[in-house]
Each structure stands twice: as structure tokens, then as C-alpha cells.
Design a protein around this nucleic acid. Structure first.
Lengths: 188, 188
DNA sequence: GCTTTTTCTTGATTTGAGTCAACGAATTTT
DNA sequence: AAAATTCGTTGACTCAAATCAAGAAAAAGC
């Protein structure tokens, strides 16, 4: 729980009371490997802080899993689009390994937003950060070739291939596993 | 100026005082056709409300203009990434037609955020909305073929081709102008 | 109006990634 | 440890979009 506080404190300085009431809204949940946190068709009603473990965020296109994101320790995992719009999610979120998360439900968060100015601010900062990360990812698709995307991803996250299988990385980069294989061969 | 208020009022209910102080921070600016609002290398210090006119948001890749977005009347135009991160922009923002905007500078906005809870909330809602739109666009690249992207864009914005030349639409969809030409031929 | 420039279309060719398929390598299961 | 399943590599082939190039059409300028 303290990791949550630490992570949040990098964004905003919360009053003691604000933290306590926020903490009282956090629900701990443990998941074994390959457990669903969210399924297609559900409305995502939570933001979850990843304490330990890892998650993948994917959707099915013609029965094939397309990975859109990964979430690791200290990340906030959610289908933020579904969370905001309250529309059914098109995605699955599934644990890659044994995981512990702290869930914060939207109905609680909305009350906190209204009551506590610093939590409202926290909400803005979270939204801004998420904007920055989607924007960066969109730019990678607009600006870069698959090979450039792969190199940049590996540069910024050198141990990713130890954490997730290569076919998920391929999917994340919007290419087929064979393409990653060939990129690796070319650059070795 | 009243259009600004109307647009904002759809997001949050501002107190009279909040609106007045916000309005006092808006700077009107008129631009002839093809004028820059932002250039590559500059830090984007503003969010501008488009009163009349249209803008294109692009970057140069090997000297070739790649259009990332369009902004029309009632949109907020900014390099929001640069605005948030305070890093130099990689983009140009240029008027497509004669335009009038109301600029709100970051230094002013930050003070407003601190002082007025509803403006802080407005900031969150703007960030959330921008997140949703980038996320949607990213999904279009992840899920859809160029042809599907084109059809969807035209569906949602039937008069876009009257407002901007086709080569900019091509660029926006991440394809070459010839491809749009061929898609149109196929579907006629 | 005509001229010039910009934008759009069409064809021929190239190319990078996808698809299909087969086969090793590595994990997991029992 | 052996068997089974999953994962990664490689090759042959296909295909959709990029590239190159030449004109046609439309818009802007005079």
C-alpha cells in the first residue's frame, strides 16, 4: 500500500486526510497467473495499481490476440477509455504472472474528486500522463517503421524480452512474430 | 468569446467569477491563411480555442510534411505534449484558412488551476477528452486497414474533403495520396 | 480569358511485411 | 527424463501499399 502512496506522491502532495480517505478506497486483490482482470464487453469500473506482477492488455481480432499494452509493477492498469466513457471495453486485461493489485473504483474516485482538491489535481495529472503515453505510442506508429519501433522499444526497455514472450512484443509493435525474428536476424 | 464559454460549459459548470478571470486570460489573435501558430523547436506555451478558421498540425519527415491532425472551429489547438512536458515541439501548427483564436497561456492556466477548483476540474476533463481522442486514433491504426480508416473518417466527417486537400487526408491516415485515389476509385 | 501552379489520377514497378508451412529450440507437464 | 506443448526461426510465396513517372484536372494568379 505504501508503494501506492510513494507513486502518487511523485505526482501531487496529498494532505494526510486525503491520503487516508483515498487509501480506504483501495481494494487489494491477488491474482494467479493468466487470470482476467477485465473481459471484453465489460465496462471498466476501476483503475488498479500494480503492486507485484505483470499484465497484458489485448483484444481479439478474428480470434487472434492483439496485444495493445503491458503493465508492470508500479503502473496503473485499466481500460481508461472504457473507464472514462463508461462504454463496454473491447479489451481483455490478463495477468502474465502472479500479481497483486489495489483497485480504486470509479464511483469512489468521483466522490474523492469532488471533495478533495488535491485528488482532483491527481486525476488531472494521471489523465495528462496517460495522454502523453498514448500520444507517444501513436507517434511511433506515425513516424517509425516496424524496425525503428522495435529498436526504440528495446532501447527503452532492454529487459522486456525477459518479461514477455516475443510474439506479444510483435503484437505490441503491430507486426507478426516472423517480422521480429527477421529484424533480429538483420541486426545481429 | 462567448463561443469559448459555451464550449467550456459543456464540460464543467463554472462560477461567474471563475469564468471572468479565465476570460481575462484569453488573448485574441487573428491569422491570415498559411500562418504559423507554432514551429518545430518551440515549446508550446498555450492552448488556443479556434473561433473561426482551420489549422493543420504536421511535422517534417525527410522534408516531407506529415499531417498528424486538423483543428476546426470550436476545437482547442495546441501541441499538448509539448505544452505538458515543456519540451520543444517536433510539430508545426499552421492556419489553413484565415483564422481567429483565443490563446490561453500555460503560466496563467497553472495559476487558475491552483486557485479555482472548477478550473482544475476543467483541466482534468480536457486531458481526459484528449486522451480519448488520441486513443481512438491509435486504435484506428492498430485495428483498421488504410481503406477502413478512410471510410470511417469520411463517415464521421463527410465534409472534410471540402475543407482540406486530399493529400493532407492521405497523410493524416498514414498513407500516400495515390492510395487514397485508388481507394476512391475502388469504391465508386 | 489564359497561364501557372497545385492537386489528383492512372499505370508500371518495387518493396516490405504478411501468410503459409515446416522444422528446431525451449518450456512445461506428467 | 521423456513427452507434449508452446515458442522462435527460416524459406517460399503473395499481396497491399510505396515509389516512380507521366498526364489530366482543378485552383490560383495574372
Amino acid at each position: 500500500m505504501n508503494e501506492v502512496r510513494e507513486t502518487l506522491s511523485k505526482l501531487v502532495r496529498l494532505e494526510e486526510e486525503e491520503w487516508l480517505v483515498l487509501a480506504s478506497c483501495l481494494h487489494e486483490e491477488s491474482l494467479p497467473k493468466k487470470s482476467p482482470l477485465l473481459k471484453e464487453g465489460e465496462i471498466c469500473t476501476f483503475i488498479a495499481f500494480v503492486s507485484t506482477g505483470a499484465f497484458r492488455y489485448y483484444f481479439l481480432k478474428d480470434g487472434i490476440e492483439k496485444v495493445t499494452s503491458f503493465f508492470f509493477s508500479k503502473d496503473f492498469v485499466s481500460d481508461y477509455s472504457s473507464f472514462l466513457s463508461e462504454k463496454p471495453s473491447m479489451h481483455y486485461i490478463e495477468s502474465i504472472s502472479t500479481s497483486v493489485v489495489y483497485k480504486l473504483y470509479k464511483k469512489d474516485l468521483m466522490l474523492l474528486y469532488d471533495k478533495y482538491k488535491n485528488i482532483e489535481k491527481l486525476g488531472r495529472l494521471i489523465a495528462e500522463n496517460l495522454f502523453l503515453s498514448v500520444d507517444k505510442r501513436l507517434n511511433a506508429f506515425l513516424y517509425l517503421s516496424p524496425e525503428e519501433r522495435y529498436k526504440e522499444l528495446m532501447n527503452r526497455n532492454p529487459n522486456l524480452s525477459q518479461q514477455v514472450p516475443q510474439y506479444m512484443i510483435a503484437s505490441y509493435l503491430g507486426v507478426e512474430p516472423e517480422t521480429i525474428s527477421r529484424i533480429r536476424k538483420r541486426n545481429s
